[in-house]
């Protein structure tokens, strides 16, 4: 299953990186979301994959068999913060698009507006 996760993480990272290298802002945004997914899976994998044994301590299993709770706590906040960042980036982009009238990041190089 490590192999399976390695493939998924590799694909998500590769796709994410490709997209944030684009000039179109929407693509950059989607790339960021894909990268966030990849990072979440990476944290989960690094904390070791455990199947079907979530950490609820009254289930009486031996401690070593449980999944590691710490990466999960990290990912949980990462997901929610990721949402905040997505929303912020989306709105920032909308605003920039309205002001600069372009979607092309290369055209947005200057802080001063041409108008």
């Amino acid at each position: 299953m490590n192999l399976l996760f390695a493939v998924m993480i590799g694909v998500l990272y590769g796709a994410g990186f490709y997209l944030i290298l684009r000039r179109s802002f929407v693509k950059v945004l989607i790339g960021l979301i894909l990268l966030a997914h990849g990072a979440n899976l990476l944290i989960l994998t690094v904390g070791r994959l455990t199947k079907g044994n979530p950490v609820f301590v009254n289930s009486g299993t031996d401690a070593t068999a449980f999944a590691d709770p710490l990466p999960q706590a990290l990912i949980l906040t990462a997901i929610v913060i990721g949402f905040g960042i997505q929303a912020f980036a989306l709105v920032l982009f909308k605003r920039a698009y309205k002001t600069a009238k372009t979607d092309d990041l290369d055209e947005m190089r200057n802080t001063d507006l041409s108008s």
Binding site: G10, G14, F17, F66, P69, L70
Partner: peptide
């Protein structure tokens, strides 16, 4: 970059891991 991540994940999963935090929290 994606390929490097792929190998990175495989290598990390291959190393041994002891987490004192996990035991403490549980």
């Amino acid at each position: 970059a994606g390929l490097t991540m792929f190998f990175l994940v495989l290598v990390i999963s291959g190393t041994s891991l002891t987490s004192e935090l996990k035991e403490y929290f549980i």
